[in-house]
Amino acid sequence: MAGPEVHIDVALQQLHLMLDGATLRTYPVSTALNGVGEHNGSGCTPRGLHRVRAKVGAGCAPGTVFVGRRTTGELYAPELAAAHPGRDWILSRILWLTGCEPGVNRGGAVDTLRRYIYIHGCPDDCPMGVPRSHGCVRMTNADVIDLFDRVAVGTRVCIHSIQTPGLMEGAAP
């Protein structure tokens, strides 16, 4: 029996945690405002097969602020947001992705790892279910903490932009 896998359906703005073909959990997400694409600087969410390269933030308080994958010592609050307008908030936990497909999402100008593409938490008032990120996959803080605790480094992550057969909108997880 293999471990869990993550499937991110960009069309539905959902992340499915799967085990042996069965959906264990479904979470709403927010992928890139610019859509899907693999090129560095595109602001797009990369497609294809990835793996969790690193997990950052174990044991940190919900709302912990990260910059460059390091804690800043801050906890997100509306006052902090007001003091830093326009900041791309990376909160609570980070699952740093690496591409597995040379020329598609690994190496050269399409390298997911070098693009710093994460699954991460964001302010709780950020809408889920609509594309708004700069390329990463955003989740609520509670959801990213839950996912973080359920996956390991090396977990397969498949990002696709067409609906997965068998995963119908509104279906129970």
Rank of each mutant, 00 (worst) to 15 (best):
T140Y: 05
P123V: 10
V52Q: 02
S30G: 14
G48A: 04
D143I: 01
D125R: 09
A172M: 14
G68Q: 11
Y27G: 04
E5K: 15
S161F: 00
M128Y: 02
I117N: 08
G48L: 05
D146N: 12
P28F: 03
L113I: 01
A172R: 15
A32L: 04
N141S: 11
P127T: 06
R138P: 04
M128G: 01
L12F: 03
G129Q: 04
H16S: 12
V56W: 02
T64C: 09
R115D: 02
G57L: 07
N40I: 09
A142E: 09
M168N: 08
G57V: 07
S161Y: 00
T71G: 12
C158V: 12
N105R: 03
C158E: 09
V67Y: 04
D125F: 12
M18Y: 08
I162M: 07
P123H: 11
L33N: 12
P62I: 11
C126S: 04
T31E: 03
L113H: 13
S30R: 13
A77H: 12
A83K: 14
P173M: 11
G48F: 06
W89Y: 09
D20C: 02
G107I: 03
G48Q: 05
I145G: 00
P78W: 10
R132K: 09
F66H: 08
G21Q: 13
A58S: 15
